[in-house]
Each structure stands twice: as structure tokens, then as C-alpha cells.
Write a protein that binds this DNA or RNA. Structure first.
Length: 692
DNA sequence: CTAGGGTTAG
């Protein structure tokens, strides 16, 4: 069967299902929103209908930040020698030369002590400089100068000082400043609340909001936009709904910022339907609005729909920005869609975002995940600015391609370029060592990362080391690492051990690991299958029957194994065991291929010891979805085209061997993303080093 | 009088 992918189909198995679609819940939310809309229509009848016809007045343009930095008349710097320094600072800030501005301030500070009275407009400029540079040192110096020189700030300047602390993440000082303010206005409240949200203290944000609501009984659209972010952070829909209702009562729900924040809140709290409703009634669909709803669909695993929305956005004539392209590249990464990604890459450059760090990092990730590590490298080297995420993406790319030496070289280059590695960097480096069998280097890094780089090994780093040991067949050592870990072993650690047991055929320890995993994630289908297969392999019929019984009782259903392949910009899905008529040509070609690879040493492998997918029929392996997909891809593309497959399950031993040899006889590159990792097959070899 | 708000990458 060769189906063009229809909406939702590709998401059922592959994507996360963290948002169970409880019909009742959605129904309630929809009716809630319906009421909300009625309420709004009632509250502002005429405006509403104007809005729905797209005639809603545009929001006022933001006033430009230029001007307003004139020297304060009554308080110029009065010691002759330093006069002009303040004016200089203000001018430097206007030219965005923030570092120079702070340096000039330092001169003023050291040479004139507190004799120079710095005016309000200069402080204002210094606040901008500190915020732009995120300079904690700068904040402390500017603030202490103000206090020590006896300058008495007014409410405006106090708010600016508060903002300066908030934006630099100095929330303890900001809280003190806020508490000590002789008077506060709405701006003060909004500023401190947005700081709390930025630092992830969503509950505190709500507490302060409630105090503000009761004490001042006021709030603006800005307050709601910020509070929606707090609700989104809580990932619970109820508070957000309450705020939505308040926003409607205050007649700010149509505000462009509030609308976007609402879309984001609803999608992050699990209701893409409500997010869509808010998007539908947005008076003016801005770039950010589109971006937010696209991000929402992507978050829920509806990658196809997200891509459709992106093309709709394109047609609507709205300007696309670096946010848009970054997201689209990431969506393409999940869809394995080289064509769409290439177009997005072109669009990115055409629209003038070719230097954007986030979008380029997404591209590095895309190219390296889809077997084009040289392209990833090219994008990376052309980036004028790189951050730790960019480095991590490329290092992980080399690791996944089984090119550990290059990954280590990059890591060293990163250190020499004074980029600080983080825990993700070490994950990439350690797994690169593991994939390439660089066990000495891996151990050295694992043992020194805490002391040398202040990154304590976490569970995932342990899992990497367990895999490293597992590859070498050192199962007892791997088990010891789990037992002696300074924290409770995680599922990932046991899973790494289980993989090692599967590859090295250690049933006893494998059974132990599988039981542990089963105990920790009793709702996950694949764990039942693994356990079931292991019991069957051990001949433990009774245990197997009991697992099967529990599975039935919980209503979990075995899903068929699926593979998707991109051919000529279309995605096609194949299901294991499908023998329907349109397959005839695919099967014929497959049989021909199988006999060809037999000449290169192919011997069918028996069912692997612990497959992820239930296999009841012995001779079914010819009909495995990955073989069907490869056969289809080979028939329908030209000789040099690489094939890209995504599949719901871990590739089996037999398919892995078969695909390896197929790349040898056909000269193709075949890239497979399976449930556990990435395989790049070329010339009879696989990047995973035959361990997965 | 000024100031405070929404979306992206490993």
C-alpha cells in the first residue's frame, strides 16, 4: 500500500502523546470559548463586528526611542574637568555603543568620584546600556553610584532601575527595590511580574498579580500578556482560562500582544483547539500571531498541519521572520523533508536572516540529522556568531555519523575558542566517543568533566557510559555503573543496559533490565512488547501470558510498525506485513534485491532477540515496512538520490543487514531515523557501527 | 511626559 500522508496520520506513533485528546475536556473548553465569544460580542457589539471584517483599527505604533535624552537643564556635570562625560554617555547609547558608554561611565566614576551629579537622562541611558549587555557588574556600579551620590530618583527612574535589575536576572535585588519603593504604579507591577515570569517563578508571579489586582484593582493589556506567559509556564489550563475571562472583561483580549500570548498559553497548556479559536478571531493576523499558532501545532506533534499553515501564511502576504524559518526548519527535521527544508533555507537567506543564529543552528541540526554532515559543517562555518547550542548541534552530528575523532576535535576547538561547554555538550561528546569506540577518551572526559568544567555528570551521561561499556561487551561493568551511580537509576540507564544485553545476547541480565523499565513506565506500550519477547525467548510461558493479559486489560493495542519515506516531495507510508495489490512491483523489486545481496554474503537473520515490535509470523521479515519503503524509494528515484526514512520502531537485525548490503549493490546512501537512533548506510556500512 | 507586553534552535 502506498498512501499519501493524510493529516494526523504521521503523528500517531512517532510523536509524543503528552496531550491525550480527551474528548470531554476539549468539548468543555470549546463551549467555554463559545461563551467567551458571546460575552465579548455582547460587551462591545459594534467594535466586534468591525473587527471581524478586518477593519479593526491598527494598534498605535510604538513611539521611537530616539530623542528624550537631552541633558537635564538644572543638573549638568558641574566640575569643569569632567563636563561632557554625561553627554558623551548618552550619545554613545544612542549609537548603540553600549560597551563604550559603560567604559566612559567607569572613567567618570573613578576620576570624579561622586562629585559629578549624574542627571536623570544619563541614568536612563546607562540603564539601556546595562540591559543590552546583560551586565550585572554594570548594574551594580550604576546603581551604587546613584545611591552614593545621593541622587533621589523619581518614580520613573525607580521603575527604570527596577527594569535594569529584572532584565539582568538580578531578581533578589529587584524584589528589594520593589518592596522599598515609596510609591508604585502599574509599570512597577508589570516590570516585577515580568521578571518573575522570566526567571520561571510562575507561582510568585500569580501571587503578585493577585495582590495587585486586589490592592490597585487595575491591570493593562501588558499585564495580561505577561500573565499569559506565566500561565503557559504552569502548563495548566485553568488559570489561563480565568485570566482570559478577566482580559475580556477588561476589554483587552483583542490586543495584539494579548492575543499572541493567549495562543501560546492555550497551546502550551494542551488545547490547540482553543489556540486556533483565538487565532481565528485575531483582528489582525501579525507575523508573531502566525508564528505562535505554527509553533503550537508543531508542539502538539501536528507537523504536517504546521507546514500547511506556513504556506498559508506565505500566501496571506504577511512578512515572515527569523522565528518563522527557525521553526519551519525544525518541523522539517521531524518530517525528514529535505525539499521543504531546502526551500526554507533559501527563504531564510532571501529574507535577509541568513546570519540568524537560531535559524542557522536549526539548519545545522537538520543537515546533520539527515545524513548531510558536510552541509551542516558548511552552514556552521559560515555563521558569524555561534553559541553553545550551535556547537552542540554539530558535535552531536559528527557523533551520530560515527565520526568521533572529528567530534572530539570540534570539542577541543570549542574550548580553545573560549566557548563554555554545558551538559548537552558532554552528552554529545560522550555519545560520540561511545558510537566510535573511543572508550579511553570517553572515560577521561566523563571523569574530569565535573572538576574541569563544573558540569556534574547526570543520568544521561551515565547512560552514555553504560552504552560505551555495553558496546565492548562489558555488561557487568555497565551494571556496576548503574548500581553505584550517586542517584536513583533512570529508565534511560536501564534501557542502555538492555540494548547491550540484546546485542550481546545476555538474556538473564536483559530480563532484569526489562523488568526494571516495565516497573518504572507501566503505561508505555513498547515496554510490554520488550518484556513479552524476552519472556518468550527465555521460554517463560507463564510470565509472558501474564504480561499479555495485563496489556489486554489496560486496553493497550499493538501498533503495526510503520515507515515513512519522502519521494518527490511526497511522503509515503508503509505498514509492516502489508501484502495488498499495489505492492506487487515493490515486492518483485525487493525479491530481486534480496537475491543480489545474497551474493554479497546476506544470510537472513532470525528474529532478533528483543525486537520492539511483535512478530508472530516467521517469514514476515520480507514485508517489514523499512524494506518495502527502501524498495519503493529505489524504484521511484534516480540513481544518485539518497533515501530518507523515518520509522516508528527500532530497525531489526535483518533489515539492518539487508539495507547495509543494498547500499553496497546500488551505490545509494540510505538514511534511517528509527525509534532509537539515526543510521546512515553507505557502501555496505552503517554509521551506528552495528550497535543500536 | 517618559517606562512595562507576545513567537524560534541543541
Amino acid at each position: 500500500m502506498d498512501v499519501t500522508l493524510s493529516p494526523y496520520q504521521n503523528t500517531s506513533v512517532l510523536e509524543t502523546t503528552s496531550f491525550p485528546s480527551s474528548d470531554v475536556k476539549i468539548f468543555q473548553q470549546k463551549s467555554y470559548l463559545l461563551n467567551v465569544r458571546k460575552h465579548r460580542a455582547h460587551a462591545s457589539g459594534i467594535r466586534c463586528s468591525i473587527a471581524e471584517h478586518g477593519l479593526h483599527p491598527k494598534p498605535k505604533p510604538k513611539p521611537l526611542k530616539t530623542g528624550g535624552y537631552e541633558v537635564v537643564k538644572k543638573e549638568p556635570d558641574f566640575k569643569g574637568s569632567s563636563s561632557g562625560l554625561c553627554g558623551q554617555i548618552e550619545k554613545l547609547v544612542l549609537c548603540k555603543r553600549y560597551r563604550d558608554a559603560l567604559e566612559t561611565f567607569e572613567i567618570l566614576e573613578i576620576e570624579c568620584q561622586y562629585d559629578v551629579i549624574v542627571g536623570k537622562s544619563t541614568y536612563d541611558a546607562l540603564v539601556d546600556a546595562c540591559i543590552s549587555l546583560r551586565s550585572i557588574r554594570g548594574v551594580k556600579r550604576v546603581f551604587s553610584y546613584m545611591v552614593n551620590s545621593g541622587f533621589e530618583p523619581d518614580l520613573y527612574l525607580r521603575n527604570r532601575m527596577l527594569l535594569m535589575h529584572v532584565k539582568c536576572g538580578m531578581m533578589i535585588d529587584a524584589r528589594m527595590l520593589f518592596d522599598e519603593m515609596p510609591e508604585r504604579n502599574l509599570v512597577s507591577w508589570n516590570t516585577i511580574i515580568s521578571g518573575l515570569v522570566d526567571s520561571g517563578d510562575y507561582m510568585d508571579a500569580f501571587r503578585l498579580f493577585l495582590i495587585m489586582w486586589e490592592e490597585q484593582s487595575e491591570a493593562s493589556s501588558r499585564t495580561f500578556a505577561t500573565m499569559m506567559r506565566a500561565s503557559a509556564g504552569l502548563e495548566t489550563i485553568f488559570p489561563g482560562q480565568q485570566l482570559h475571562a478577566c482580559a475580556i472583561k477588561m476589554d483587552v483580549s483583542q490586543d495584539i500582544f494579548v492575543s499572541c500570548a493567549l495562543i501560546d498559553m492555550y497551546s502550551k497548556c494542551g488545547s490547540i483547539e482553543d489556540a486556533q479559536c483565538v487565532f481565528d478571531v485575531m483582528p489582525e493576523k501579525t507575523t508573531v500571531g502566525w508564528n505562535t499558532i505554527i509553533a503550537g501545532y508543531a508542539l502538539h506533534g501536528y507537523s504536517e498541519e504546521a507546514l500547511d499553515l506556513y504556506y498559508e501564511m506565505q500566501d496571506s502576504g504577511v512578512r515572515m521572520d527569523h522565528f518563522t524559518f527557525s521553526m519551519i526548519v525544525r518541523i522539517c527535521t521531524r518530517l525528514a523533508s529535505l525539499e521543504h527544508a531546502k526551500q526554507a533555507h533559501a527563504g531564510l537567506v532571501r529574507h535577509g536572516f541568513g546570519l540568524d543564529i537560531v535559524a542557522n543552528t536549526a539548519l545545522v541540526d537538520f543537515y546533520s540529522k539527515w545524513g548531510r554532515i558536510e552541509d551542516a559543517r558548511h552552514v556552521f562555518e559560515k555563521m558569524p556568531l555561534k553559541n553553545v547550542i550551535s556547537w552542540n548541534a554539530l558535535i552531536a552530528g559528527y557523533g551520530n555519523h560515527g565520526r568521533g575523532i572529528e567530534a572530539l576535535e570540534l570539542f577541543n576547538r570549542m574550548i580553545s575558542e573560549r566557548m563554555t561547554p554545558n551538559h548537552v555538550t558532554f552528552l554529545a561528546v560522550l555519545s560520540a566517543c561511545s558510537y566510535s569506540g573511543l572508550s579511553d577518551q570517553g572515560w577521561e572526559i566523563f571523569e574530569t568533566m565535573g572538576a574541569d568544567f563544573k558540569v556534574k555528570p547526570r543520568a544521561m551521561h551515565y547512560a552514555c557510559m553504560i552504552e560505551l561499556l555495553g558496546r565492548e561487551g562489558l555488561l557487568d561493568e555497565a551494571f556496576a555503573l548503574i548500581r553505584d551511580a550517586p542517584f536513583k537509576p533512570t529508565v534511560n540507564m536501564w534501557a542502555a543496559l538492555l540494548t547491550a544485553c540484546r546485542v550481546h545476547k545476555n538474556l538473564e541480565l536483559g530480563k532484569f533490565a526489562a523488568e526494571k523499565i516495565y516497573g518504572m513506565e507501566p503505561e508505555k506500550l513498547s515496554n510490554y512488547v520488550v518484556l513479552l519477547n524476552i519472556y518468550n525467548s527465555c521460554g517463560k510461558r507463564e510470565e509472558a501470558a501474564s504480561v499479555f493479559h495485563t496489556l489486554k486489560k489496560k486496553g493497550l493495542r499493538m501498533l503495526p510498525a510503520c515507515t515513512w519515506i519522502d519521494v518527490k516531495k511526497q511522503q509515503h507510508m508503509f505498514i509492516s506485513g502489508d501484502k495488498s495489490k499495489p505492492q506487487v512491483q515493490i515486492i518483485r523489486n525487493l525479491k530481486k534485491l534480496m537475491s543480489e545481496i545474497a551474493n554479497h554474503g546476506y544470510v537472513p537473520k532470525k528474529n532478533s532477540l528483543l525486537p520492539d515490535v511483535d512478530e508472530r509470523e516467521e517469514q514476515m521479515s520480507l514485508y517489514h515496512s523499512e524494506k518495502l519503503a527502501v524498495s519503493y524509494g529505489l524504484i521511484n528515484t534516480t540513481n544518485s538520490t539518497p533515501l530518507h526514512l523515518v520509522q516508528s520502531h527500532r530497525i531489526c537485525d535483518d533489515c539492518h543487514l539487508a539495507v547495509k548490503l543494498m547500499t553496497k549493490v546500488t551505490g545509494r546512501v540510505i538514511v534511517v531515523r528509527d525509534a532509537s537512533r539515526f543510521h546512515r548506510f553507505e557502501d555496505g556500512k552503517c554509521s551506528c557501527g552495528d550497535y543500536w
